[in-house]
């Protein structure tokens, strides 16, 4: 009976790591199919994907969209959080509700709504439209994270700065932003991971230039291939790196 919890823990970890394990292991497969028996290890497929122009272009596009949309989301989210926390606004609960609202709607519906409006108004689909969609889904998170960390502590420092003659722009740039740096960084990196991985909005709102998840999607049609394993392992590596940065940024500070 004593061993039962540990057996469960091990079984759960096997289940959780089974797909990732198979993904990474068979990315080093020497043969042409990512299934047992394992032959290798070989870096053949990694060499092939880094030489693939379409794929590397999609990877660059993904980074561009992720960084650009996260930057816009964090700037807009920060300004809104500052405005709501430091100024008296009528209907502020309603504004907060409206800013958070996109979180409650599935990505497919956000993308579908934008697609309808864009095609009706004749705006062409591109990386920019995908980026706009990603700002819509990341703005609520960025706003919520930054708003939650705006406390009395910064307010006192802001007041002191104002008493010493700083204008509002100086207060924000020299006091508020540095004091909130961990929350702002957390919001930014979270946005980057979500946008970097996002598929359905990017799929609906891009056309000729696509992001990496969309490119991977089109490769899926040709079935199982160690190439896909190699790409997937790389994407996983990037996400894990960003998550670990987040972990260190947020939790080291707290403890």
């Amino acid at each position: 009976m004593r061993a039962l919890p540990w057996a469960y823990l091990i079984a759960a970890f096997v289940f959780i790591y089974l797909p990732v394990g198979a993904l990474v292991l068979f990315s080093f497969q020497a043969g042409g199919l990512p299934v047992p028996p394992f032959e290798g290890p070989s870096l053949r497929w990694y060499a092939e994907i880094t030489g693939d122009r379409d794929l590397m272009e999609a990877l660059g596009n993904s980074l561009l969209v992720a960084l650009g949309s996260s930057f816009v989301a964090v700037v807009l989210g920060f300004l809104a959080a500052y405005g709501l926390a430091r100024h008296v606004l009528p209907g502020s609960a309603l504004i907060r509700g409206l800013l958070i609202a996109p979180l409650t709607v599935s990505y497919l519906i956000v993308g579908l709504g934008l697609l309808i409006v864009l095609t009706r108004t004749g705006v062409g689909l591109s990386l920019v439209t995908a980026g706009i969609g990603h700002v819509v889904i990341n703005l609520p998170l960025a706003f919520a994270i930054i708003y939650a960390s705006m406390g009395a502590q910064q307010q006192n420092a802001e007041r002191a700065a104002r008493d010493l003659g700083a204008g509002e722009a100086q207060v924000i740039w020299l006091v508020t932003v540095p004091m909130l740096a961990p929350a702002i960084a957390a919001a930014f990196f979270l946005s980057v991971t979500l946008s970097w991985d996002e598929f359905i909005i990017a799929f609906l709102l891009t056309r000729f230039d696509v992001t990496l998840p969309v490119e991977i999607w089109s490769l899926l049609r040709s079935g199982l291939s160690p190439r896909l394993n190699a790409i997937g392992s790389l994407v996983f590596l990037v996400s894990v790196t960003v998550v670990l940065i987040l972990e260190i940024l947020i939790f080291r500070r707290k403890s």
Partner: peptide
Amino acid sequence: MSRDTARGWGFVAPALLWTLAFFVVPFVVM
């Protein structure tokens, strides 16, 4: 409207307009 409130709107406006233009309007159109 007090000066403080007007300034507050200035900070909130970009995020609010973005949400209205790219979330609320598409939703109503849908």
